[in-house]
Amino acid sequence: MTVKKVIAENSRNVSIEIEGRFDFSLHQQFREAYSSCNDSGTQFSLELSKATYMDSSALGMILLLKDHAEKVGGDVLINRPSEGVNKILEIAQFHRLMTIKV
């Protein structure tokens, strides 16, 4: 249950990786991971290969991240979600909202 944040040198590519359960307990860490990245055109990629579970608050957090990315003229990409997590993303029809790389 951790949030790792890696910012590339050009500061336009921010990678956020979730390990374990992706739920409400992460909301503050998650928001802190992106709220300070305000460079225009920043690409946020969310690594979910190690995420084992996801509830609706995780979906809400991703939507808030997307709002933030759009505010700075950037985009959100979800990378290699695990099978269970991917099913949740499919039900929520997130593939219509953002790119999901399986």
Binding site: H27, R31, S56, S57, L59, G60, M61, L63, L64, A92
Partner: peptide
Amino acid sequence: ITTSKKSL
């Protein structure tokens, strides 16, 4: 999902 987002 909308409820979650608004709650956050």
